[in-house]
Design a protein around this nucleic acid. Sequence first.
DNA 1: GTATTATTTGCGCAAGTAGTTAAATAGTCA
DNA 2: TGACTATTTAACTACTTGCGCAAATAATAC
Lengths: 114, 114
Amino acid sequence: MEGLPDEALTQIAAYFQALSEPTRLQILNLLREKERNVGELAQLCGYTSANISRHLTLLTQHGLVARESRGNSAYYRIADASVYQLCDLVCGNIARQHDRAVKGRAMFTGTAAE
Amino acid sequence: MEGLPDEALTQIAAYFQALSEPTRLQILNLLREKERNVGELAQLCGYTSANISRHLTLLTQHGLVARESRGNSAYYRIADASVYQLCDLVCGNIARQHDRAVKGRAMFTGTAAE
DNA sequence: GTATTATTTGCGCAAGTAGTTAAATAGTCA
DNA sequence: TGACTATTTAACTACTTGCGCAAATAATAC
């Protein structure tokens, strides 16, 4: 990422944006287990199929999931498993930040920072 | 990320959203070299100080940069260097996707997929 | 105190986005 | 062919967000 041109930054930003939506992360999380069709995902997420379908097209455009048409259903599966690596990294960062917050509060409350 | 509750997904999404903006990535990229104050960053990015200041507050809230007030300037520096790791991962993913695109096109154009 | 500089914040505008319903499209089965 | 089901797309609403301008705040110098 050292000396990247502006266009590259734009693409990276777009990739992050695809991951910046709870519903899309939920979809990716559900697809971790096994492939699913749109209706299943919609029901599991608690949204309309139309909505989930649009999220899936966006994820497909970024190469995160892959679509396979079978019967009159569309099955989606993870296409780039490194997403989970990304999420794990982020989880670690968030956890560290929570730690700092707890320790910071401990200074005032006297609570043990566990 | 396996069995995360919805709230966790929301936090992860928020973290990704902080990185989903070209200007913010540019700021992080500039801070890689050394700390900078708001005015410098504004000039380097080509935006108003007001705009950059807001981006910096957001990045600070997510623990990505840290602020230090010196004189009547505010100096910002990277607080979580693992951001660059994240970006490197994403760069790899985008590169792979470009590769696939080139190779896919090659089937039709006869172009060598370099 | 005033003047000057740097940063932050309030406000408004334009563009983007997640969600809905309804219509269009595609596939299966009789 | 038509009926039925699944998915995608269109149209719309409500909300969010990046930006600039101008005012407010903070720190230094006189």
